[in-house]
């Protein structure tokens, strides 16, 4: 509601003063773009002042550790959403990867082998998603990733033969997922590393530019000679690999695999990407959006926990925030349309 009002105000002032409107509008647009990070900082500020236990090194370190899995999987989800897609299977994919990792640990306790198993499992499910979506000519990735959501979870339950936790992980993986360095969780460094890598790919490499082009206008991308199918499949493979990394972190922190891990992770990661400020309409957003969104979810959960708020309310809170975030995406489109009209008026 408040956003709507602001929008009206912006247009009203713009009509009054000839050349101003364009600058006025672009200011609003920029404000909207910076919105999520500003809101996150405000939120942290308010919580620091009002919730006693919140702004302590120990709690902050906790937040990072709890956010790491959502964050790293959201990084992959973000690439998929950039191409106008969606990956509903990431949570089940992660669970299956931890189960396969735990099974591998019983056969071979080499940390590298166990880690490779989890990453390969994640990447394989991602590849199936992408290949079936593209070459099966499915109308929407919703369908195949919904199918693999079910299949991967079923497989994980079958393979774990009735055990909800399969204890045992190599020491190295436990340190990566659960250890700290100077009080900072090691998982934080893993997330930072993956984010940096994906940032380099997305912003400095041709492949990344193609991802944005495919998301912006798939038809035009085809006519400009971009290998659209390959680009789309690659985003699902990366999303799967990110789920594999998430599996390593979670299995490491708990020193176990479980077919129940990653429940509703698809919801958390999609929420993180959208709350962070990327667009469902494709081609808009960057790594920072996924990270900001993930941290925001982590902070809200943590604060509600500290305040002893019922867990059900956490779900409701996240849902409300998603609606607000999507609303601001819609608002941004309105403003851009306005901007186009004003530009045209300026030329005439």
């Amino acid at each position: 509601m408040r956003l709507k009002f602001a929008w009206n105000a912006g247009v009203a002032t713009s009509v009054a003063s000839g050349k101003e409107p364009v600058t006025g509008l672009s200011l609003w647009l920029r404000l909207l773009g910076a919105g999520p990070i500003v809101i996150l900082l405000l939120l942290i500020g308010v919580l620091a002042l009002s919730v006693p236990m919140f702004f302590t090194p120990r709690n902050l370190s906790n937040i990072l550790a709890q956010t790491a899995v959502i964050a790293v999987v959201a990084l992959g989800q973000h690439l998929v959403i950039l191409t106008r897609g969606i990956d509903l299977s990431v949570g089940s994919n992660l669970a299956l990867a931890t189960v396969l990792g735990a099974l591998m640990f019983r056969v071979n306790d080499n940390a590298f082998v166990v880690m490779a198993t989890m990453l390969a499992a994640g990447g394989a499910v991602g590849a199936i998603n992408g290949l079936v979506y593209v070459y099966g000519r499915l109308p929407h990735p919703f369908i195949i990733t919904l199918a693999t959501l079910s299949i991967a979870r079923g497989l994980a339950l079958e393979l774990s033969i009735g055990h909800t936790t399969m204890r045992g992980m190599p020491e190295t993986i436990a340190v990566i997922g659960g250890g700290t360095t100077y009080g900072i969780p090691n998982s934080f460094f893993v997330v930072a590393g993956v984010a940096t890598l994906l940032f380099v790919v997305a912003k400095t490499m041709v492949w990344g530019r193609w991802i944005y082009a495919v998301g912006g206008q798939p038809d035009a991308a085809r006519r400009m000679g971009i290998p659209v199918n390959g680009v789309i499949v690659s985003t699902y493979v990366i999303a799967g690999l990110c789920a594999g990394v998430g599996a390593v972190l979670l299995a490491g922190r708990t020193e176990a695999g479980s077919p129940l891990y990653g429940n509703l992770l698809e919801l958390d990661t999609i929420a993180a990407v959208i709350i962070g400020g990327a667009s469902f309409l494709g081609g808009r957003g960057h790594i920072g959006h996924a990270l900001v969104g993930a941290v925001m979810i982590g902070v809200i959960r943590n604060a509600l926990n500290l305040l002893n708020v019922n867990a059900y309310y956490q779900l409701i809170a996240i849902g409300v925030i998603i609606v607000l975030a999507v609303q601001s995406d819609v608002l941004r489109n309105h403003l851009e349309g306005r901007m186009r009209v004003l530009q045209a008026a300026r030329v005439q």
Binding site: R209, Y212, A213, G215, G216, Q217, A220, A221, M224, G225, I226, G282, G283, R284
Partner: peptide, 13 residues
């Protein structure tokens, strides 16, 4: 490509 700049549009592909 609406989401890209003119220069990025020129060289896309």
């Amino acid at each position: 490509f609406d989401n890209l700049t003119p220069a990025q549009n020129f060289f896309c592909g």
